[in-house]
Design a binder for these strands. Structure first.
Length: 872
RNA sequence: GGGCGUAUAGCUCAGCGGAAGAGCACUCGGUUUACACCCGAGCGGUCGCAGGUUCAAAUCCUGCUGCGCCCA
């Protein structure tokens, strides 16, 4: 604390320039070690594992929102005295990164196969060193208070060891197996994909009906993928379908081939869809595969890994999209096309990484048997070990984990964690643990790598040193909160839950899951490259600063619901920062300080007590809203208090108190200092930069980052002060309204005589009221040319003004007529209720009382206004 | 096809049983010694539609319609 004697001046520049200050400030915090977590601390821990961004990615609005939330949460806990660990890092993004490097290689006319596996992987590491992790620098610009000393990457040695450890454990427990099944295959990335790496969209296609067989023994099937008929091994119908009962068990010749295929009965066929008969291609459709299994049908693969036709004949070598019309044309030639529908809109799966249409493909892959893991993941939420916010989304989580399909984890890539399984002579298979030697001669390792999510599912504990029993793990696991968008609840949250519970002896990976909404444009539309409505957060950081960007995002963050953002929102937040800046400058120029003790309540003015009470309520509200993850609401409260209460009213009232000088001015400086101090502390988690600068100037303290969070004390209900301020606000507002209606310039001072002020208990505030309403004392020759009566909670005040004769009677009549209409409507509503005996009988007494007093006020207002109008 | 959510001022959203709110936009007036990124005043809504419950419904229930999301 400084010994600054009030009043003093301030060195604060006249405007807040974020670009000039933020970088330096941030580096200062990092250098001071404020964000470094201490495992040996005896403070309670608070941990957030940053959802690792993709190593190839850069900061987008979704990140900016999520990072703002996590930073706000951790900064508050740090101020509350927790040992905070916010752990940063990235994932290796198998497909995306490999694609990026292969694209690079392609410009040199090379493929990864030209380099060979080892050289290629080296090349990826080089690429990462040079281009990867752009986002880490962008996080600094946002102000993320992460512990950089603990930064992790999913391909690090330690995390790779964690991957191998859990793979071995799952393998030994029989939860990992290898099976030949239909998987989602990307013919461009040349790898398997899990269900959730496939995006479905409604695309234009075609529906072609084809007749198999002839005459009575013929049957018509419909398909959107005519080319797959080359791999048909049956036609299926529902067993109860009267139309086809006679055909069950018979065979039909398959057109364009020399094969005949059976007609089988299967309960899963929907008789009402199409013709009720479906062609069965077990090697190229997941449902057909199941039918094939049930009826022991052969699977004929007709497409290679690039989705090029491999069956001999006229279609050999054609791409699937080329083969489709060719097959239809050939069938038409034979007169087998019964109907064609184009366009036929249907759901088509696309690779989430490259957009290529996914090809269901029969292949041998590694799988995680999720049933026991998913049940545990559901239970952890069901029994409250992990809480989902907002709770409505828990249902979606249960729907997912309770109906989860086994997870394909092998990827036909080079960049990633290689599957630690070796194949030896006589079909021997061996899974190698992290501390074991791979088998020697005659054994080869599986060439595939693991899904990136397999390693990021370990993130909350692999980053803390698992499988070693580290102090960090002991101190910081389970993590406190996982914050992420609800869109990756399934992708990632469920998987972290499964692996966390499994690896950590049923201890959940996080106590709370906070799910925020998605960012949309000003019209509520999804941001996308194609519609060009995306906003780059870096642009906002450049033009409005980190605080404004963060405040905009936090202010829109209502739990679980999407938020629209636009330029104007950021500008509004910037304006708020400027307002805070200027208010602080004013306070400091007038000697606001935290070095002076706030005097006891009896020595304070109504205005002082009023603002202090509001401040206490603000602390309590904001504190509670933080606990509830209600970022939008807490931002709104802070905005409203700062601008509408503190700036618009208290600062104006304080001007009069400061002008009084002496003890009154000193008390005011103390109150200004206290309230401002609280505002800055409360705002710091969301707007760390501007609050830091202002707070240091106000208090001379080291840093707001390590200053204590305000504690919610007793909220005093000083109704006298509250009513008097309400009265003075009413008085000032009515005078302003009158002046505005009368066309009196805002700055023009008007002589006025006030009566009834002391009787209403507003004597102490009269000077303030005059200052705010620009009213001067009546001078010699004062001649009231207009007057108005203002009813306040504590009495009616009459204001007589000398407008030098020029009174716009028509404007005044209009104003009074409008007031009268409002009062009459009010009276009518109150009477309607009170005249209803059921209301007076059944409604609670306090409600009836309230309506009665409202009626009384309305009656008095009507009487007063009517008298005025009559007198005009 | 199944499930979930939502419909409130021109726009984006709060409010979720007892007097319709905010931000932005808009209109008018302002060199008021913190701030024009500002100040003051104002305009603007039968709370999607139709029923029901209740003394009382934007708020609870039912149906309908529109929109959105997830899953198949």
């Amino acid at each position: 604390m400084t010994n600054t004697e009030a009043p003093r001046t301030t060195d604060l520049p006249t405007a807040w320039d974020p670009a000039a200050v933020e970088g330096r400030l941030y580096q200062g915090w990092v250098d001071a070690g404020y964000f470094t977590a201490d495992v040996d601390s005896d403070r309670p821990s608070y941990t957030i594992a940053l959802p690792p961004p993709n190593v190839t990615g850069s900061l987008h609005m979704g990140h900016a929102l999520n990072h703002t939330i996590m930073d706000a949460l951790t900064r508050r806990r740090r101020m509350q005295g927790y040992e905070v660990l916010w752990l940063p890092g990235m994932d290796h993004a198998g497909i995306a990164t490999q694609n990026a490097v292969e694209k690079d290689l392609a410009t040199e006319g090379k493929s990864r196969h030209d380099l060979g596996r080892e050289a290629f992987i080296e090349r990826v590491w080089d690429w990462k060193a040079e281009y990867g992790g752009k986002i880490l620098g962008q996080m600094r610009r946002l102000g993320d208070g992460v512990d950089w000393s603990r930064e992790r990457f999913t391909m690090d040695d330690g995390l790779s060891k964690a991957v191998q450890t859990i793979f071995k454990k799952l393998f030994d427990d029989g939860l990992i197996y290898r099976a030949n099944r239909i998987i989602n295959w990307c013919p461009r990335c040349l790898t398997a994909l899990s269900d959730i790496e496939v995006d479905h969209s409604d695309d234009d296609g075609e529906l072609v009906s084809i007749r198999y067989g002839d005459g009575e023994n013929s049957i018509v099937v419909a398909t959107t993928r005519a080319e797959t008929m080359l791999g048909d091994t049956a036609v299926a119908v529902h067993p109860d379908d009267e139309r086809y009962k006679h055909l069950i068990g018979k065979e039909v010749p398959l057109p364009l081939t020399d094969r005949v295929i059976p007609i089988v009965a299967d309960e899963h066929v929907d008789p009402s869809f199409g013709t009720g008969a479906v062609k069965v291609t077990p090697a190229h459709d997941p449902n057909d595969f199941e039918i094939g299994q049930r009826h022991q049908l052969p699977s004929i693969t007709i497409l290679d890994e690039h989705a090029v036709v491999t069956v001999h004949g006229p279609f050999l070598g054609m791409d699937r999209f080329e083969a489709r019309p060719a097959v239809v044309a050939a069938l038409r030639e034979e007169g087998r096309i019964v109907a064609e529908k184009r366009p036929y809109v249907h759901s088509v799966g696309h690779c989430s990484r490259c957009g290529t249409v996914v090809e269901p493909r029969l292949s041998l892959q590694w799988w995680v048997k999720v049933e026991p893991l998913a049940r545990a993941a559901g239970d952890a939420v069901r029994d409250g070990r992990t809480q989902i916010h907002p709770p409505e989304l828990a249902k979606r989580y249960f729907d997912w984990v309770d109906n989860m399909h086994d997870w394909t984890i092998s990827r036909q890539l080079w960049w990633g964690h290689r599957i630690p399984v070796w194949y030896g002579p006589n079909d021997k298979v061996m899974c190698v643990g992290p501390d074991e030697e791979p088998p020697g001669e005659g054994w080869t390792q599986d060439s595939d790598v693991l899904d990136t999510w397999f390693s990021s599912a370990l993130w909350p504990f692999s980053t803390l040193g698992w499988p070693d029993q580290t102090k960090a793990l002991e101190k910081f696991y389970p993590t406190s909160v996982l914050s992420t968008g609800y869109d990756i609840l399934f992708f990632w949250v469920a998987r972290m839950m499964m692996f966390g519970l499994y690896a950590m002896d049923e201890v959940q990976p996080f106590d709370h899951v906070y799910l925020h909404g998605l960012i949309r444009d000003a019209q509520g539309k999804k941001m996308s490259k194609s519609s060009g409505n995306g906003i780059d957060p870096l642009d906002w950081l450049d033009r409005y600063g980190a605080d404004a960007t963060r405040f905009t995002l936090a202010r829109g963050a209502n739990p679980g619901s999407d938020m629209a953002v636009a330029e104007e929102w950021a500008a509004g937040s910037r304006n708020f920062g400027t307002k805070l800046w200027n208010a602080s400058r004013f306070a400091l120029m007038n000697g606001a300080t935290t070095a002076l003790e706030v005097p006891s309540r009896s020595e304070l003015t109504d205005a002082d007590r009023w603002i202090l009470d509001l401040e206490a309520k603000l602390v309590s509200d904001v504190d509670g809203l933080f606990e509830d993850f209600q970022f939008a609401k807490l931002c709104d409260e802070l905005y409203h208090f700062t601008w509408d209460e503190f700036c618009d009213w208290y600062l104006e009232l304080a001007k009069v108190q400061l002008a009084e000088g002496g003890a009154r001015a000193d008390a005011t400086r103390a109150v200004l200092g206290k309230v401002l101090d609280t505002i800055l502390r409360l705002l710091h988690p969301v707007m760390p930069f501007i609050t830091e600068v202002l707070w240091k100037e106000l208090t001379g303290g080291e840093s707001l980052v390590i200053t204590s969070w305000p504690t919610a004390g007793e909220v005093t209900a000083d109704t006298v002060a509250a009513q008097r301020i309400e009265g003075i606000q009413k008085l000032v507002t009515e005078v302003r309204r009158f002046r505005s209606d009368q066309g009196v310039k805002p700055g023009q001072r008007v002589p006025a005589r006030l009566s009834g002020v002391a009787e209403a208990g507003l004597g102490e505030l009269e000077a303030s009221a005059r200052s705010l309403a620009r009213l001067t004392e009546p001078e010699d020759g004062f001649a009231a040319s207009a007057s108005l009566e203002v009813s306040t909670p504590t009495g009616t005040v009459t204001v007589e003004l000398d407008l030098s004769g020029t009174v716009d009677v028509e404007a005044e009549r209009k104003r009074l007529t409008k007031d009268l209409a409002v009062a009459e409507k009010e009276l009518q509503q109150c009477e309607a209720k009170l005249n209803n005996p059921k209301f007076t009988e059944k409604a609670p007494a306090d409600v009836v009382e309230k309506i009665k007093s409202r009626r009384a006020v309305a009656v008095a207002d009507i009487e007063r206004i009517k008298a005025r109008l009559a007198a005009m």
